[in-house]
C-alpha cells in the first residue's frame, strides 16, 4: 500500500470514527436525521438508472393482476430526483407515460402523457396517499426518498436477518401524507431499508413493506429485487419485482422533458 492510499484510508477511518462518535453524542432526533442523511450519502453518485418493474396485485381471495412498468431515473444535485415511467401493462394503458420531478421542498412537478389523445397533461401532485394503479403502494411510497421530507427519531438497534438494523421513526413533513409516521429498519453495514411499517393518520398500523434480495450495482449501489407490501386492514398485498437494472446509461436532463415524455416507448 503506497503512502497516498494509506493516508486516504486513514482519513476515511477517521471520518467514520468521528461520525460514529457524533451519532452517539446526539439526541434521538439528531441520530435519526444522521441515519437518513447517511442512506442518501452512501448511494450518492448513482447518476442515472433504468429498470423494469412488475407489480403483482393480490386481493384477499388471492386473485392476481399485473402491471408492467419501465422506469428511468436521474439523480439531481441539490434537489429531488427525476423519473419517467412507461406503462406496458395493463394493455389499455399501454403507452401511457408519467414524468415526475421530485423536490426536497414544496410540491413535486408531474406530467402524464395520454397516447390516445397525444396529450401531455400537467397533473396535481397533491395526491400523495392515493393508491398507485389500484395497488397497495401509495404514490408517496414510490416517490424518491429525500431527507427533507421527514423529521426523525432514532428508536433502537435491532437484529434484522444476519444484520443489525437501526430502527428509526419518520414523520412526514407534508400534511397531505396519508401517514402519521413510518418505522423503518435500516441495516448498519450498507444502510439498506429492510422493512417499513406505515401508520395511518389515526396511528393504526396500516401496511408493512419488506425489501428482499438486495443486489449491488456498479460495485456500490444496492437495490432490492423484490418488495412486498401487505395491507393489514384489507388483507390485500402487492409485490414489486425489479429486473434489468442498469446504472450510468447516459441519460440526461433532456431525457426527462415533456418532449421526451411524448416520445417515450
Amino acid at each position: 500500500m503506497n503512502f497516498a492510499l494509506k493516508s486516504a484510508a486513514a482519513v476515511i477511518t477517521a471520518t467514520l470514527l468521528a461520525s460514529t462518535s457524533a451519532v452517539f453524542a446526539e439526541t434521538p432526533e439528531e441520530k435519526g436525521m444522521a441515519i437518513a442523511q447517511q442512506t442518501k450519502i452512501v448511494d450518492e453518485g448513482w447518476g442515472d438508472s433504468v429498470a423494469e418493474m412488475k407489480m403483482i396485485l393480490r386481493n384477499a381471495d388471492g386473485q392476481e393482476s399485473v402491471r408492467d412498468i419501465r422506469i428511468r431515473s436521474l439523480e439531481v444535485d441539490g434537489d429531488g430526483d427525476k423519473s419517467l415511467s412507461i406503462f406496458d401493462k395493463p394493455r389499455d394503458v399501454k403507452g401511457t407515460a408519467f414524468l415526475s420531478f421530485s423536490h426536497t421542498v414544496g410540491n413535486d412537478d408531474q406530467w402524464l402523457y395520454l397516447p390516445a389523445l397525444k396529450r401531455v397533461k400537467r397533473i396535481s401532485s397533491r395526491n400523495k396517499s392515493g393508491p398507485f394503479m389500484g395497488s397497495e403502494f401509495a404514490y408517496e411510497d414510490l416517490s424518491s426518498f429525500e431527507v427533507e421530507k421527514f423529521t426523525y427519531q432514532y428508536l433502537r438497534d435491532e437484529p434484522c436477518g444476519d444484520e443489525t438494523c437501526f430502527v428509526v421513526e419518520q414523520y412526514p413533513a407534508d400534511k397531505n401524507s396519508g401517514y402519521k409516521r413510518r418505522i423503518v429498519w435500516i441495516d448498519q453495514s450498507e444502510y439498506r431499508m429492510h422493512k417499513t411499517e406505515f401508520y395511518n393518520r389515526r396511528d393504526a398500523l396500516l401496511k408493512t413493506l419488506e425489501a428482499r434480495n438486495y443486489e449491488q450495482y456498479s460495485g456500490r449501489h444496492w437495490r432490492p429485487t423484490e418488495m412486498h407490501m401487505i395491507n393489514h386492514q384489507t388483507g390485500k398485498s402487492t409485490v414489486l419485482q425489479w429486473s434489468n437494472y442498469a446504472f450510468q446509461t447516459g441519460l440526461s436532463d433532456s431525457d426527462f422533458s415533456q418532449n421526451s415524455l411524448k416520445r417515450a416507448r
Binding site: S124, R126, N127, S129, G130, P131, N176, G178
Partner: peptide, 12 residues
C-alpha cells in the same frame, strides 16, 4: 379542483 381519497379512499 381535486378531492383525493373520498369515502375512506374509495375514489378521487
Amino acid at each position: 379542483y381535486s378531492f383525493y381519497g373520498l369515502a375512506d379512499g374509495l375514489f378521487d
